[in-house]
Design a protein around this nucleic acid. Structure first.
Lengths: 165, 165
DNA sequence: CGAGCATATTTCGCCAGCGAATGTTTCGTC
DNA sequence: GACGAAACATTCGCTGGCGAAATATGCTCG
């Protein structure tokens, strides 16, 4: 390893040296991403509890705001890599909390439009600051140039992943 | 953006330009990691279905092999960022499938030793090749140097995340 | 030596998400 | 213009994971 500092994945990898036909670099990259995502999820959940919201609720509101305040469930589901059934569940809880409203499409009555309520937008704004703080705290250990490098590399992987479907 | 190729996160980000007080780079990094992990999970689940195994079963066996063939549930849970209760559930299904065996610790009878069965080791070996192939296919769009750069950056983030606890 | 405190695991009730099946509405085609 | 196929959302049954409480064992100290 390069530096003297170790993370849990280093400790995991050294146990494997020579034990299996096995690309250490690939394992490292994959495992670290998995752990980072899991840690982020836990940090954000703890932070968002301050405003009585759950991570998945915020993410859904967030996508909805990005879409201009309204979108169809299937579109949201696809964007968030979620099954349609899962999205129905999310929307149920959001609607029950009054953060979101469902409206049958006037033109095509198979569709449903999901709209952000004023209360939903308000809570999203609050949560926005919280989430930004948590994510920044993590990513800011890298300087601007390093962040850009990291982002570019991740993007190339994601392009590959998304082309595979 | 640097290249002309776009991924879904690019498309997401451009909608946000100027709309919120919001670090685009941080959002990019975080969202791409989340999506990559989710994609990986889906790819691996599809691939592992060939040997009738689920992703979480493989990961558990994997950690168990790394630990030398046996470990305690709480140790495994901690290593995998899982709650003790969750680990009990995993071990239940693994034991039911005969891939793993639980043995009460002889010295300290509060403890349980989880041991890999021969069948478990055999199936792990099979799955190993499959998983390696899927992960490599993704990560190999980067050359060796790029992989190393990526790994080093991820590691610095993970060190930060793990120190936060 | 026994009462309480600590440790390790499991049980219990709950929740989010998935795949498959269902009910509607719309479209394409003959 | 009617009928089969496709598009959308939802319901249903199931599963993995979580937090809190329960259980069982070990340790410590008066």
């Amino acid at each position: 390893m390069i530096g003297r500092v170790e993370d849990s994945v280093d400790r995991h990898l050294v146990r494997w040296r020579g034990k299996a036909p096995y690309d250490e670099r690939v394992e490292g990259v994959v495992t670290r991403m998995q752990f980072l995502v899991k840690h982020l999820k836990q940090f954000k959940e703890a932070a968002l509890a301050q405003v009585g919201m759950q991570d998945f609720e915020f993410e859904t509101l967030h996508r909805l705001v990005a879409a201009g305040g309204s979108a169809t469930p299937s579109k949201l589901a696809a964007e968030m890599l979620l099954s349609p059934a899962g999205m129905t569940g999310r929307l149920d809880t959001l609607e029950r909390s009054g953060l979101v409203r469902r409206v049958r499409g006037a033109d095509d009555r198979r569709r449903v439009d999901v709209e952000l309520t004023p209360k939903g937008r308000e809570l999203w704004t609050e949560a926005m600051a919280i989430r930004g703080r948590v994510e920044s705290e993590l990513v800011s250990v890298l300087d601007a140039g390093e962040q850009q490098t990291l982002d570019a590399l991740l993007k190339r992987l994601l392009v590959q992943a998304e082309s595979h479907r």
